[in-house]
């Protein structure tokens, strides 16, 4: 039990460290990332979202490595050098003393808070999925377009669903769009379906819980905008006209403004720095050159190997840290 407490505390400390690393990386690379083409930017942002977890996993694996080696090769066991009151991060020599009660309570409350937030988010997501499922099953299936038509004038078009998304298009929007605009909108939404963007976005939202609040808000928004821009690019490649995509975005935005004034007046609609503006301006500019994520992945792999190579030092450092704050 004491051993579990120490491993848990180490994992939380490494997650906090990872979220600091991610916050610094976001600050340093935000401007550079903004110049990347959206598909690569989306991938890089997802990696950044996973950075605290990747960091914590590599650090915990590295700090546990001497103990794992001692399990296989008892001759390399170094624990007998320490006394029984040492904070052993070890599977062989279980620590005799647990962590201080206040630290333990803080740990339990922190983890309970995260679990509660996750459950509330999950409950809202499940209800939204049931609403979407009702819309899909009672809507008109247009197999010729590969969409479900929803009987409402609210101009809504979305790829809906987590694992098996389907394109939903409202009757009002379907009837108001011209052929070219409809082709753009459907190509964009099919790109979301193909890329599983809603699933990726939900994973990023879950990972955002362990980021610093400011970094988390920035990450969630940037991932969503990058996904939209990636689908804009795919739609532009599909219809062969970037300007047609920009024009369709503005048509739907204009329709959404009318609906917001007419039908959604009970709901607050945000104005301000707007995704539509960034998307249209990107489409009016020349396409960004392709960027490979390979070097970034190799860099992260090398960083993880370096952390593993420092296993001995990290193990002692972690035990000293745990002894200082826990015992």
């Amino acid at each position: 039990m004491h051993s579990l407490q120490l491993f848990l505390l180490a994992a939380v400390a490494f997650l906090v460290l990872g979220s600091f690393v991610a916050a610094v990386a976001a600050r340093v690379f935000a401007a550079r990332l903004a110049r990347w083409e959206p598909r690569a930017r989306h991938g890089a942002l997802v990696l950044l979202a996973a950075l605290p977890v990747l960091t914590a996993f590599s650090l915990l694996l590295s700090a546990s490595l001497p103990s794992l080696i001692a399990l296989v090769l008892p001759g390399l066991d170094h624990c007998p050098m320490h006394d029984d009151h040492h904070a052993h991060l070890c599977f062989v020599h279980l620590p005799k003393v647990g962590i201080h009660l206040p630290v333990l309570l803080a740990l339990v409350f922190g983890l309970s808070y995260l679990a509660l937030r996750a459950m509330l988010a999950l409950s809202a997501t499940v209800r939204a999925m049931r609403v979407l499922s009702s819309l899909r099953r009672t809507g008109e299936h247009r197999d010729d377009l590969g969409i479900t038509v929803v009987e409402t004038h609210v101009p809504i078009c979305c790829a809906a669903g987590l694992l098996r998304p389907r394109v939903l298009l409202s009757r009002g929007l379907l009837e108001s769009l011209g052929d070219e605009e409809r082709a753009v909108v459907l190509a964009h939404e099919r790109a979301h379906v193909r890329r599983r963007d809603a699933f990726v976005a939900s994973v990023v939202r879950a990972l955002a819980v362990i980021h610093m609040p400011k970094t988390a808000r920035w990450l969630v928004r940037e991932v969503e905008i990058a996904a939209e821009q990636a689908c804009d690019e795919e739609a532009a490649e599909g219809v062969g006209d970037r300007l047609a995509v920009a024009s369709a975005i503005l048509t739907v935005e204009r329709a959404a403004q009318h609906a917001a004034a007419r039908e959604l007046d009970g709901l607050a609609v945000g104005f301000g720095e707007c995704a539509v503006e960034r998307r249209v301006e990107a489409l009016l500019a020349d396409p960004r050159p392709q960027v490979s994520l390979g070097p970034l992945v190799i860099l992260l792999g090398l960083a993880a190997l370096t952390v593993l190579a420092l296993a001995g030092e990290l193990h002692h450092l972690t035990e000293s840290f745990l002894s200082a704050i826990a015992h």
């Binding site: 939204a128 987590l162 809603a198 939900s202 969503e224 739907v252 609609v269 707007c274």
Partner: peptide, 18 residues
Amino acid sequence: HADAVVSAFVDIAERAGP
């Protein structure tokens, strides 16, 4: 609450100013 399961063509919660 539903962003995790919906990718809308234009953001429902955010409008460009006139």
